[in-house]
Amino acid sequence: MAEISFPLPDLGEGLIEATVLEWLVAEGEQVERNHPLVEVETTKSAVELPSPQAGKVVKIYGGPGDTIKVGDPLIVFEVPDDTAGIVGTVPKEEAPRRRVRLTAALDDED
């Protein structure tokens, strides 16, 4: 298993921090991509952050009222090694399938 840390993104244009209002997931919880993670308030608005990926939540940073700086860790997920951060998908190992049969005769020297 691999751990992937997700930092607080810039939720507006040029914001430097956000304040946690309420965590919507708990450590140990398995979440799907886009599942609501946390409600935070910035100087512009209060927003709900969706999960950037599926995985098990192993750590969350900050409780209600705490301020987190943009770029600092927000949450850490645990994911299987072979899906960690990959672009594309892992090819499946399949038994070879064929439609072509070889028919050519060999010569005397074979």
Partner: peptide, 8 residues
Amino acid sequence: GIRAPEHH
């Protein structure tokens, strides 16, 4: 072989 987009 990994179903990725262009350049991959």
